Computed example of a mutant assay.
Amino acid sequence: MFESVGWAEILVLGIAGLFILGPERLPSAAAWLGRSIRKVREFATGARDQLKGELGNDFDELRKPLQDLQQLRNFDPKQIVAKQLFGDDTNGIKPNGFAAASQPQPPVPPAPPAATPDPPKLAPGERPPVDPDAT
């Protein structure tokens, strides 16, 4: 719940509470806060248990997408990209075209030569043709 709060922030909050509430009321305020958090947790646990009891096996199906999202929060973008680029494929052929060592590599057909004709040479001072659709 308080994953992003460090010890320094807790210390600052404690000192601020000491100045605001004073040393007489600070212990009772801390006890009230603890009881309130405990009640909220009990309500959440009771609601989850009641929902799980009513839905049965469907409750696990509802939690599955949430668990998948929580797992995505823990991923590093570099790891995701590396896994997609260098991870094992189901067919054994890597993205770079090489096959895995356990499977024979299929023959690769040679690439056809580029058959683009060279544009005609322009005479000195001649303006190149303009394509109205390209401009």
Rank of each mutant, 00 (worst) to 15 (best):
Q105R: 08
P129D: 07
V130N: 09
N91K: 11
P119L: 09
D118Q: 10
R127I: 07
P128N: 12
E126I: 05
P106A: 11
T135M: 15
P112T: 13
V81S: 14
P95V: 04
P132H: 06
P106F: 00
L85A: 06
K78F: 07
P120T: 03
D89T: 13
A134G: 14
K83Y: 09
G87Q: 02
D131G: 02
F86T: 08
Q105S: 13
S102P: 03
L69N: 01
T116R: 01
K78Y: 07
P128Y: 04
K94I: 03
G92C: 12
F75E: 13
L66K: 15
P128F: 04
I93A: 07
D76A: 08
Q103T: 09
P113T: 06
V130T: 12
L72A: 10
K78I: 15
F86C: 13
T90G: 03
G92Y: 01
G125C: 10
A134V: 11
T135F: 08
A99H: 02
F75D: 02
T90I: 12
R73V: 15
L72K: 07
F86A: 09
R73E: 14
P132G: 00
D68V: 08
A101P: 11
T90D: 13
P104S: 09
L72S: 07
N91L: 10
N74F: 06
Q105H: 13
Q103P: 02
K83V: 03
P124V: 04
P95M: 03
P119K: 01
P128S: 03
Q79A: 11
